Computed example of a mutant assay.
Amino acid sequence: MAMHESLLSLAEYLELSLNAGESVIMMQECNGSCAMYIGNAAKSQSSLIFQGTITALVAEEILQLTRTGRNQMEIAGQVYRFVRSVTHFEDRGAVVFAPA
């Protein structure tokens, strides 16, 4: 089975979050893309570290391939465990992928 490119993108951000000891925050789509941050979702948006963007299509596929709550999946030979939840920053929603 071919690896979904979206999961490879998610794995890159999960690695960054593991190195930082924080969560991945995927902001709600705006103009066809989603901003990706690393940080503590319980703090203000200004405390998050911007890491780049992914297309809305990639974001949608990530949401389809993961579920709310606990997840465990192997991506490119590495097992990732995380909890997917939702939050809200100022004027937009976000999905949080917290290491578990």
Results as ranks from 00 to 15, higher is better:
Met1Pro: 15
Met1Cys: 14
Ala2Asp: 12
Met3Arg: 13
Met3Val: 13
Met3Pro: 09
His4Cys: 12
Glu5Arg: 15
Glu5Gly: 10
Glu5Asp: 13
Glu5His: 12
Leu7Ser: 07
Leu7Asn: 10
Leu7Met: 12
Leu8Arg: 00
Ser9Ile: 08
Ser9Lys: 12
Leu10Trp: 05
Leu10Thr: 02
Leu10Met: 10
Ala11Gly: 05
Ala11His: 07
Glu12Asn: 10
Glu12Met: 09
Glu12Thr: 08
Tyr13Pro: 04
Tyr13Phe: 05
Leu14Arg: 03
Leu14Ala: 07
Glu15Met: 07
Glu15Ser: 05
Glu15Gly: 04
Leu16Arg: 02
Leu16His: 03
Leu16Phe: 04
Leu16Ser: 03
Ser17Glu: 06
Ser17Thr: 05
Leu18Met: 00
Leu18Ala: 02
Asn19Ser: 14
Gly21Asp: 04
Gly21Pro: 04
Glu22Cys: 07
Glu22Leu: 08
Ser23Arg: 02
Ser23Leu: 03
Ser23Met: 06
Val24Asp: 14
Met26Arg: 05
Met26Phe: 01
Met26Tyr: 05
Met26Asn: 06
Gln28Tyr: 01
Glu29Ile: 13
Cys30Asp: 15
Cys30His: 14
Asn31Pro: 04
Gly32Trp: 02
Ser33Trp: 00
Cys34Glu: 03
Cys34Arg: 01
Cys34Phe: 02
Ala35Val: 00
Met36Gln: 09
Met36Asn: 05
Ile38Gln: 03
Asn40Arg: 11
Ala41Gln: 11
Ala41Cys: 14
Ala41Pro: 15
Ala42Leu: 11
Ala42Glu: 14
Ser44Arg: 13
Ser44Met: 12
Ser44Glu: 15
Ser44His: 14
Gln45Asn: 15
Ser46Met: 14
Ser46Gly: 13
Ser46Tyr: 12
Ser47Asp: 15
Ser47Pro: 12
Leu48Asp: 03
Leu48Thr: 01
Ile49Tyr: 08
Phe50Gln: 06
Gln51Val: 10
Gly52Thr: 09
Gly52Glu: 10
Gly52Lys: 09
Thr55Asn: 05
Ala56Val: 11
Ala56Glu: 07
Leu57Arg: 13
Leu57Cys: 07
Leu57Asn: 09
Val58Lys: 09
Val58Arg: 11
Ala59Asn: 03
Glu61Ser: 10
Ile62Tyr: 01
Ile62Trp: 02
Ile62Pro: 04
Gln64Glu: 13
Gln64Ala: 12
Gln64Phe: 00
Gln64Val: 09
Leu65Lys: 12
Thr66Pro: 03
Thr66Glu: 12
Thr68Ala: 11
Thr68Met: 10
Gly69Met: 08
Arg70Glu: 13
Gln72Lys: 09
Gln72Met: 06
Met73Asp: 00
Met73Asn: 01
Ile75His: 04
Ile75Met: 12
Ala76Asp: 15
Ala76Trp: 00
Gln78Gly: 10
Tyr80Asn: 10
Tyr80Met: 14
Tyr80Gly: 08
Tyr80Phe: 12
Arg81Glu: 07
Phe82Gly: 04
Val83Ile: 10
Arg84Ser: 06
Ser85His: 00
Val86Glu: 11
Val86Thr: 12
Asp91Val: 06
Arg92Lys: 11
Arg92Gly: 02
Gly93Val: 02
Gly93Ala: 00
Val95His: 05
Val95Ile: 11
Val96Ser: 06
Phe97Gln: 04
Phe97Arg: 03
Ala98Asp: 09
Pro99His: 08
